[in-house]
């Protein structure tokens, strides 16, 4: 997939593979379907969703993505920024 540069606005896929069968997912539920901003590309790693089941795992990009806590939870605001590691195949550029 195209590498996402810093500052790219992204939407985390609103997908719930765990509802369709066995799954190992490193994308927290609270950011799925939410908008964030790519901070930086952290590196490329074997896809843990396959590694967990001993399947051949493609190397996928990992990004640090910034979220505004106000878009995730109701007030009162407590954090100012939330940084989450998210694999590229969970992100769609806005």
């Amino acid at each position: 997939m195209t590498r996402l540069g810093p500052g790219t606005r992204v939407i985390v896929r609103d997908d719930w593979p765990e509802t369709r069968g066995e799954a190992h997912i490193r994308t927290p539920h609270y950011v799925r379907g939410r908008e964030g901003v790519v901070v930086r590309h952290l590196g490329n790693f074997p896809n843990p969703e396959d590694l967990a089941f001993a399947r051949p795992a493609a190397t996928v990009p990992l990004y640090h993505v910034r979220f505004d806590p106000n878009t995730l939870w109701p007030p009162p605001r407590s954090a100012d920024v939330l940084l989450v590691e998210i694999f590229g195949h969970w992100l769609e550029a806005r």
């Binding site: 927290p28 790693f45 843990p48 990992l62 806590p69 939870w73 407590s78 920024v81 998210i86």
Partner: peptide
């Protein structure tokens, strides 16, 4: 969800206007 509350419960005093960045260590 409430890092300021958690940090305060540890007795940690941060200046009120301190920006708090929570890092959720989710992957590699």
């Amino acid at each position: 969800r409430d890092p300021r509350g958690v940090i305060a419960e540890w007795g940690t005093m941060l200046a009120p206007d301190t920006e708090i960045v929570v890092v959720d260590s989710t992957a590699d």
